[in-house]
Design a protein around this nucleic acid. Sequence first.
RNA 1: GCGCCCGUAGCUCAGUGGAUAGAGCACUGGUCUUCGGAACCAGGUGUCGCGGGUUCGAAUCCUGCCGGGCGCGCCA
Length: 557
Amino acid sequence: MSLSIRYEIADLVRRALDSAQASAALPQAEIDDLSIERPQKAENGDFSCSLAMKLARPMRMNPRAIGQAIIDSLPGSDLVGRVWLAGPGFVNFALDEGWLRSQVDAAAEAGERFGDSQRRGASVQVEFVSVNPTGPVHVGHTRGAVIGSALANVLGAAGYEVQREYYVNDAGRQMELFYQTVYARYLQACGRRADVPEDGYRGEYVIALGEEIERERGDHFLDMEPSRATSEIGEVALEAMVASIRRSLSRLGVEYDNWFRERELYSRGDFERVMALMDERGFRAERDGAVWFAATKLGEEKDAVLIRSNGAPTYFASDVAYHYDKLMERGFDRVVDIWGADHQGHVSRMKAAVSAMGADPERLTLMIYQMVTFKQGEELVRLSKRSGDIISVDDLVDEVGADACRYFFLSRAADTQMEFDLELAVRQSSDNPVYYIQYAHARIAGIIAMARERGIAADGGDTSLLTHEAELALIRKIVQLPELIEVMAASLEVHHLPHYAQELATAFHWFYQQCRVISGVEGDEELTRARLMLCQAARVALARCLSLMGMDAPERM
RNA sequence: GCGCCCGUAGCUCAGUGGAUAGAGCACUGGUCUUCGGAACCAGGUGUCGCGGGUUCGAAUCCUGCCGGGCGCGCCA
């Protein structure tokens, strides 16, 4: 679609600089960044360029003189209304009001594609949550789930071809233990005596699972030879858990494009291939009967075991094979993994492994989100009960609702620890930013519906009639979304989304207060239609923002 | 001990090296013959954890402390 406005302003400055230098109005100098910013104060314009101060030293000139020279050489542009020199040498830009008004039609027309960038032709995979299918999704994973899904949405809007993936750890010792536990619970459900294994899964959900299998399959596994029964019942349990995880996440508004099975790494040969590759490239070592990744050759503190002396591959080895599959076999241009802070120690080792297999480690981003502390008022909430049961994502969604959950987790930057007060979340639910934003959307929908009832067309209005301060403020906010998407896609920081949504809703509510949309006054018909256009545009921007956050945009509340 | 992350208003948090550091919540007062009052407007508080450094300019970058979280397995 369109380039972001910031990019266009930067381009103007770049051209001004080139032409000023060509005409010797300014001396030559190295410039790596044009320093286009969004000023905090509206009086400083829509955009501000602080380049002149940065060039003062290399150009050995007064920054105000440099700023003036840039202004003098600035090419004309239909989106810039006014340019002026301010303070120590800022070059400030105010967007042209006519251009702003023209964006109302553009936004309304773009509809749900509003804010989209041009296709980049690059693929990104976002992998998130990926908890072991040995139990329900823990409440602690909510944050990663919400951030991951919103990030995938944003990258999609920014023009990437995105795949959302869940990595199902369906191989390894933990799964074996889980299967044995389920088998024991199944036997108990059948009325047999059976003990759950020493380190087995204590949660009640396993009892329920055993009973469920008994209900559905009767004594099918009862007289089977135990190891075969464990393995067959394991398959049933695995699929049941994966389905249940999928359901829980779906309730949170989290959907995946692909559920990748760890076993495939072995069945389709990824594991063998990457081990051979590491060997070939000199990163395989044998010691103490185990096979190691010689990570220290790449500056890591220690080597890491890939294959234990008992012949079993480690979790890390699977992960190496998994990343080999993503980067080399499936060939994503870029891969983003979202991990909890408890995995932070694995980051540099994983990056080293990517280098060792001969891929550019820059293609892999390991994003860490910090832990969440859950509180009930003043009281700290323990997340796992002694029984082995846990507070699950489902419990949280039941308690506060998916939209409020998503909004709350999205509002904070991933790298800060955060507190979640369950009591507060429920208590404030009626006086909550979530409702404030959704209410703005419902309000607009209501106005448009009323206009339709009265037979007033909501399109084709003359937007040049939109001259009120509140109207322009709203347009300015709407027009910011494409730029925001670019910024978020580059920084992978989706927490700007809720803040923007809030500002957009405020701009709308203020406009609503100041400007009557459907006027009963004779002679106001044209203005009504123009304002309806603006409502359409505001609705488009709000709805897009909400959908990027994975939240509902209600017609009425 | 070592590594990663954090410390901003009473609380929860924003703040791409720029101009007088901002929101929400909470608190107080006000607005409306109203298209949805779940709205709008006004009111104020900050040693940006502390100290150095880099810079024309630092909440932001570097560094040393202090405080908090999370890691440092042939567990996953």
